[in-house]
């Protein structure tokens, strides 16, 4: 089973998020970079399927040259091939991103059985690249998946059963392969990279493509941190001495009646 997983390099922001003075980017001078947990789970899922049914896992990202680092992180988890759709670091819109990915995975004659994505990019939260890629390739698609089962016919993977919980009910989708699926964190527990995995990832060659793009209709004007961030909590006390104050607070809030 040939699987391609698409991931995105995003800043690893922790306690506070800061915006550059021009208001257009997240300030990353103090942060490292990572991929979204959704995407790490997508890679883990692909590696597990390949381990069970054979085949290989490709990881693909669209981003600046440094995004090769995130590809190597994913190669260390068990993917065997890395493709970088290299940009100059500018933020591409979802339509341009989908065009470039669809082109890179084979245009109309896709060679993968399954394309996996994270449900939404951690930073821009656009919720649409997988669906647009599916349409460009003429493939069935489902998003937000938390359970995946590959159903073989003979020695070929033929269908997948993809499930998710929605408003208290479980929804199950039965899709013919090839298909496009986006997954959410919780579908599995990603492994820690092994030492041999890391060494292999370090040596792996990353294939690089430089696609071109056009902006779409959604234009970012300014980023800002929501109002209300940066208030200061009222300290009720230290250690067990604070318990009486805590109990009165709970009482005031109507929690103890």
């Amino acid at each position: 089973m040939e699987i391609c997983v698409c991931v995105k390099r995003v800043p690893m922001v922790g306690g506070a998020i800061m915006v550059t003075p021009d208001g257009l980017e997240v300030d990353t001078t103090m942060s490292g970079f990572t991929v979204s947990p959704h995407e790490e789970c997508a890679v883990e899922e692909a590696v597990q399927v390949a381990e069970r049914l054979g085949g290989s896992v490709t990881v693909l990202t669209l981003g600046p040259p440094e995004a090769a680092g995130q590809l190597r992180d994913m190669l260390a988890l068990g993917a065997s091939r890395g493709i970088l759709l290299q940009t100059d670091g500018a933020e591409w819109g979802p339509m341009a991103t989908a065009d470039a990915i669809a082109e890179a995975v084979g245009g109309g004659s896709v060679t993968y059985d399954l394309l996996l994505f994270g449900n939404e990019a951690a930073d821009t939260g656009g919720y649409q690249v997988p669906v647009r890629v599916a349409h460009l390739l003429g493939l069935p698609c489902v998003t937000g998946i938390k359970g995946l089962e590959v159903v073989p016919a003979g020695d070929r993977p033929e269908r997948i059963l993809a499930s998710r919980e929605y408003r208290g009910t479980e929804e199950v989708f039965d899709l013919p392969l090839p298909a496009v699926v986006s997954v959410k964190e919780g579908i599995n527990l990603p492994r820690y990279p092994s030492l041999p995995g890391r060494l292999r990832a370090k040596r792996a060659t990353i294939e690089t493509i430089e696609p071109s793009w056009e902006p779409d209709g959604l234009r970012k004007e300014r980023l800002r941190v929501p109002a209300g961030a940066g208030k200061k909590a009222q300290v009720l006390g230290a250690g067990t001495e604070a318990v009486p104050a805590l109990v009165s607070l709970l009482d005031e809030l109507g929690m103890l009646s």
């Binding site: 922790g14 208030k231 200061k232 009222q234 300290v235 250690g239 805590l246 109990v247």
Partner: peptide
């Protein structure tokens, strides 16, 4: 960071504060 984001805070070890609470 949670201390600048919460409304109230208790500075202490949860393993002591929670059983007492």
């Amino acid at each position: 960071p949670i201390v600048t984001k919460a409304d109230y805070a208790v500075i202490g070890d949860l393993h002591e504060v929670l059983p007492a609470l």
